[in-house]
Design a protein around this nucleic acid. Structure first.
Lengths: 256, 256
DNA sequence: TGTACATCAGTGAACGCGCGTTCACTGATGTAC
DNA sequence: TGTACATCAGTGAACGCGCGTTCACTGATGTAC
């Protein structure tokens, strides 16, 4: 950003910068790390610039060299959280054979849950109640979509190659085939088609609609577990989660 | 609506009490109303005793005659919110014929969503990320279970009278009948049986497990909608919500 | 090559704010006899 | 019935706290010539 003027002037571009630039990147990282630590300890509302600075041995006003405001720091944490969660889901899905679609779905779901359990306050930051007075800027949109993209991707893999007919492997032809014929109510038909075009091209709208159910179910369950709503019913909820993941796979019509 | 409860709230034995007792009940109610107003305007974290007192033309210390602390006021709001949501769901379900189970499920879901949309901050208070440092006391448990009880109740109505066989009307015998035979993984079998015993006696554990999926789906969807996660995909989400409610009814095996 | 200047990180003090909670008090309402 | 006492709502001042943000500054790092 501000470094563009200095760095482009003949110095080694790219990986390393000037000492100043490297120091800046490192301290920016340290600020975010400490902020995350406080997030984990006390939650988003108790996150304060002063406390972060104090813990880093700096004076509070020094942070303003790195983040223009508390909200900007929050935004950075939100983007990092979406990215970390997205990366976990992507890695889990990518670690399975492309054809094992149901297994990829399972892996994606469990990766999301595991990440959320390991980082409950970061999860709450992105999937909990919105912080009043804070408006998420546009930069968060892309990272926020990564998990949905993973799910859309594995869905698209089923339908890839089959134009008018049902998906390959004959399995999607059973449940998914029925779903593909389904008539969606009202605006949902258009909306599903639009979402499908963005994240799962080639997939019939009804299947996309069912996938969105599975998607809200996934995060609904994780939120319920993390926010304490399952205490007293299905707690621990590992088996319930696994069961729900299978039922959602059925609902969408994933082979396996 | 809540005014009727104010009378029973105090320790007055009959409908009326002394002037003092009636004044106390009324002012307690006014404090909660103003607190709710601030909740709606600025969210839970910005809710402050001082601001409530200021708005009521009282001095902040006067509130301590009614609530021992900020947390106690929060608890009262939480209980009221659970009760209001629960009452809405109960009324909606009760307004349909007992035999129209699927219709009662629909009504319950839509009532919950409508209430949440009408009271987003109160909804966030009970289903959003927990307030750090605040521990919900035991008094919240019963009101928190009212919606689940409604759902459990309509489920139990299907299986009522049929001991070993599938439910009546021959409809649950199709989907629900299959589900009833299902083998649940790990702890989920016990957990579902225990939950069933509490809120839906007579209902097979696998059906209870599927109902819990529907239950988390219901609130997961509402949260996603309210917390802005559906913006850009299914927004407005009325039709998506309605569609998901039907798919969940199918999953559980509700007749209709 | 060295020197003069520009950029930038970090300091320390200050501003103005709102918060939860405590405490001794006043005056009105309720109660016992 | 009236009177003496107890209970209780509400007051106003104060305590101690932490916050986000601004601003003029110092000294180190980087750059142009």
């Amino acid at each position: 950003m501000a470094s563009s003027k200095a760095a482009t002037n003949g110095r080694s571009p790219g990986i390393t910068g000037t000492a100043r630039e490297r120091a800046r990147a490192q301290i920016t990282q340290e600020i975010k790390d400490e902020a995350r630590r406080q997030l984990a300890a006390h939650g988003a509302q108790r996150l304060s610039l002063r406390a972060v600075a104090r813990e880093l041995g700096m004076v509070s006003s020094a942070l303003y060299r790195y983040f223009a405001s508390r909200d900007e720091l929050l935004t950075a944490l939100i983007i990092d959280a979406y990215d970390a969660l997205g990366a976990a889901a992507e890695a889990a899905a990518a670690a399975r054979p492309p054809a094992a679609v149901r297994e990829r779905w399972r892996a994606c779901c469990h990766a999301a849950r595991d990440w959320a359990i390991a980082h409950p306050h970061e999860y709450a930051l992105i999937y909990g109640s919105p912080v009043p007075g804070y408006q998420a800027p546009a930069e968060t949109i892309v990272p926020a979509g990564r998990v949905a993209l993973v799910i859309g991707g594995l869905l698209a893999d089923i339908w890839r190659g089959a134009d008018g007919a049902a998906g390959p492997a004959g399995v999607a032809g059973v449940t998914g085939g029925v779903a593909a014929q389904e008539r969606l109510p009202g605006q949902l038909a258009e909306q599903s088609a639009a979402v499908g075009a963005m994240i799962a091209p080639g997939v019939p709208a009804p299947v996309v609609a069912r996938t969105m159910i599975a998607w809200t179910q996934l995060f609904g369950m994780i939120s319920f577990e993390l926010f304490g709503q399952l205490v007293g019913s299905v707690d621990p909820s590992d088996d319930f989660f696994g069961y729900a993941v299978e039922r959602m796979a059925d609902l969408v019509g994933l082979p396996g």
